[in-house]
């Protein structure tokens, strides 16, 4: 016998009743023994047991029973009658199990972040129709032009020279790859170059003002490496993936709205992407009968610039991660230890 409140679903009145579980049936009767409801347990919905709540039992005809089951008697009776608890409820009953699940969750999240997400982003980036990717890049350029870039002040002659030389190298290193070279200026002589989605490569005056032509070719080769591997699109997809997952796991769904634009703003390449692009640059230089030296020189120059400028205007797209030093060491190995 379990004391309960009965609500008929039509009025807010609470009627005090008693419950009995017999075989596979639930019987509801008043204090003086008048049977009000008689239902098979298979037809009633019993709420999940929580530590300090009454159990709520829904009968098929809209009637609700509120049972204070402080000593767990009802839970036991239901269990005996064969009412099974859902999987999720059984999982969360024991602390040890919960800790194990938490560990598995963290592990899975880590593997997903390190392996799954980049793979999914890569798959999506190569699935994206080139036309859409191109438009995305154009739109990026429009936004950057509006908020960040100025027109170039470079002499047309030097621009044509750089463009032409790069075109020859690109045709040799990666025939058939489409790209578009744009010249811009930004900040206080910001030293930077970047690859936008869809093959748009932007060169800033600040960079071209401090480098030799071979070094400019090396940097362009590096950016073309990003273009070929669709690094920028993949990076965007990865950021969006992180935002979406975080929204799903921690926010209610509205969180997604807030996190996605933020994620889009952080366009930064991973270590692997940068090293991959470096390798491509070296390959491109080789087609022009050059060693990796121009790229090495460029990074050396960047290191000097970093010291000089107090790390103020360091080009985020080029030197954020991995460190310039690490890349220098790597190139040094390729240049002077050919056995490797």
């Amino acid at each position: 016998m379990f004391p309960a409140s009965r609500f008929d679903g039509r009025h807010a009145d609470a009627v005090p009743v008693r419950l009995r579980v017999e075989h596979h049936d639930l019987i509801v009767e008043t204090a003086d023994g008048v049977v009000l409801d008689y239902e098979q347990l298979g037809h009633v919905v019993v709420s999940e047991p929580f530590d300090h709540t009454p159990r709520l039992i829904g009968l098929p005809n809209g009637i609700t029973l509120e049972v204070y089951d402080g000593d767990g008697g009802l839970t036991g009776a239901l269990q005996q009658a064969g009412v099974r608890l859902p999987l999720a409820v059984r999982l969360q009953r024991h602390w040890l199990g919960v800790v194990a699940i938490l560990a598995a969750f963290v592990g899975l999240l880590a593997v997903g972040y390190v392996r799954g997400l980049p793979a999914a982003a890569r798959w999506a980036a190569f699935l994206l129709p080139p036309r859409l990717e191109h438009r995305m890049g154009e739109q990026f350029l429009v936004v950057l032009d509006k908020h960040h870039f100025r027109g170039t002040r470079l002499e047309p002659q030097r621009r044509a020279q750089i463009t032409e030389r790069f075109a020859r190298a690109a045709a040799a290193a990666a025939p058939g790859v489409t790209y578009r070279l744009e010249f811009r200026a930004a900040g206080k002589n910001e030293i930077n170059a970047m690859a936008l989605p869809g093959g748009i490569i932007v060169m800033l005056d600040g960079l071209l003002n401090v480098v030799e032509d071979d070094e400019a070719l090396a940097v362009l080769g590096h950016e073309l490496g990003h273009v070929i591997a669709k690094h920028s699109t993949r990076q965007i997809f990865q950021s969006v993936g992180v935002g979406t997952l975080a929204g799903l796991l921690w926010g209610d769904f509205s969180g997604v709205a807030a996190s996605v634009p933020v994620a889009l703003g952080v366009l930064r390449y991973s270590r692997e992407f940068e090293l991959e692009a470096d390798d491509f640059a070296v390959m491109l230089l080789k087609t022009q009968d050059l060693s990796a030296e121009p790229l090495y020189d460029f990074f050396l120059r960047m290191l000097e610039e970093e010291h000089e400028r107090h790390r103020a205007d360091i080009p985020i797209f080029l030197s954020s991660h991995p460190s310039t030093k690490e890349r220098l060491e790597r190139l040094h190995q390729r240049l002077y230890e050919p056995s490797r």
Partner: peptide, 20 residues
């Protein structure tokens, strides 16, 4: 009458199943 220690377990199971 909710308790952090109880909700913690619900939360962990919810997170794990959502991810899986």
């Amino acid at each position: 009458s909710g308790r952090g220690s109880e909700y913690f377990r619900i939360w962990v199971v919810n997170l794990a199943l959502t991810l899986v």
